[in-house]
Structure formats: C-alpha cells, structure tokens
Amino acid sequence: MTDAPSLEVDHLTKRFGDFTAVDDVSFAIHPGEIFGFLGPNGAGKSTTIRTLLDLIRPTSGACRVLGMDSRRDAVEIHRRIGFLPADLALWNNLTGRQTLQYLANLRGGVDWKWVDQLSERIGADLDRKVGEYSSGNRQKIGILQAFMHRPEVLILDEPITGLDPLVQLEFHSLLRETADAGGTVFLSSHTISEVERVADRVGFIRRGHLIAVERMSELHDKALRRITLEFAAPVPAAAFEGLEGVHEATVEGATVTAQYEGSMAPLLAVATQHDVLSVASASVDLDEIFLEFYRDEVQAAEK
C-alpha cells in the first residue's frame, strides 16, 4: 500500500503505576481499510484507543492520526474523526436529539440531512430522554454522534453492544460504505464474528502485547478448519498425524477430530481408507487461529 497511513500507532507503551496496559505496540491503518482490533477483555484495546484520542497520554511511543500527533494536534484530529466509546455514557437529562444538537454545536460542520438519513437507517428514537433509553437505543445515539460530521477516520470501541442483529447488519454495511468511499475504520471488538464479517485486516492483542496483524483474506486462506470424522470402528490418531496441512488430530472412540489448513484432499484420502459414517466440517474461530499460529508469541505475552 502506497498511501500514507491514516492511523498509526508507533511503539506505544502505557503504564498505570506498576501495571503495563499496553506494551510496545505498533501498527498502521490505511485509507479505505477496516481494521479489526481483536482481543479478550483487559487486553489493552480501550487503552490504545483512549491514547489515540488524547484522553490519556502515552508513557512512551506515539500515536498519529491523519499524519498528526495525537497529543500536539488533538483538537484538529478530533475535528476529522468520529469516536464511539465503549460502555457509552451520555447525559441522562437530555433527549437523543438534544444530545446530538449539543455535540453538533460543539463540533460544527454537521449535515443534519445526513443525520436524519442515518437515524432512519438504524431506526434511532431521538425524542425520549437518554436516561430512559434501552442500552441499544443509547448505542444508536452513540453511532449517530460518531458519524454525523462524515469523519475521515472512525474509531469504534465495541460498537455493536446492545444492537439487535438487523441493526448490526445495517451498521456493518455502513462501515463498508465508509471504507469504500476512502474512509478508515478502526474497529475494536471482542466479538469475533463481527470482526470476521467486516474487517479487511485484523490485529490481535493480548495482555498489552500485539501478537500479530493479518490480512483477513490471507487468514481465510490459511484459515484452519475443523473436520470431525465418525468411523464405524476406532481409527488410530497416528494415521492422520503428519499429513500435509493437518495441525492436530485427536481420537475419541470412533470419532476423529482434526484441524487442518488448505486442501482437505490428503486428509480425506486417508479417511476413505476406513469406513466413514459421517463428515462434519466447520471453520475455526478467529482467536483459535491466532492461538494456534502464534502459540509462542501468546506464551511470551502471558509471562
């Protein structure tokens, strides 16, 4: 990719007292890209994001957004990005519309036609007080305020929390449209299916360490799949071990479960030498893929 990155984290470290929340993390996201930031709770996702926003400051290292330093140019960066925080809190005594008006007044440059259009798309209710909303409805206000000024970069922390599946779909197509129009989306999530569905690239963070960054398409190519074979009689696991593409094979009675990447042919060739009763195949969750491929890195991070 030749474009300058629209979002760049450069050897970022953040400590809170003795606790290192983010440890020497570096990655870059380019225009037109949806970047999934994946990791379990407490891995350092929100800390990284809050540093990008200049809500907290790096212990060392730096963050750049649209080529500007997150600390020095915070105000200019904020003008051009949209942010949806995790665990969204708004002012309970304002209605949805008042909330948006308040933030629009502070921000400037809001296209209300676009806001109305968006709000219709995700079915937001703007006329009641935020304190009376369900968490899903509050989240919709959060989405609207992040999108309302057509930002160049979107930073979204657990955005689909509380949204029903239909709204999630609509939201994800909105993300895709944004990226196709040249925007950049930084999507933090612990919901694997969400990242799988929309991200172009995905970074995997664990205990403050960035374990790996992978293209989604490449991940799918080498994506592990899991096959479960049921035989008429027990088959020794050794028969499947060492086969091309097979990562792991376990036997439980007459059932063999194997994880493999690439072509299924060598595995099936061996299997059909026995009496196969049934075959079931499924994709392996993204985090299992990471854990499998980056076992050493994960172990190092756990220490």
Binding site: L55, V75, L103
Partner: peptide, 14 residues
Amino acid sequence: AEGTMNVLGSLPRS
C-alpha cells in the same frame, strides 16, 4: 465520573 468525558473529550475542542 459520569463517563461522558469520553464523548466530550473526542470533540475538536481543547
């Protein structure tokens, strides 16, 4: 304390 600083702090105002 209310958590609204997350939104307020992301606005283009110092």
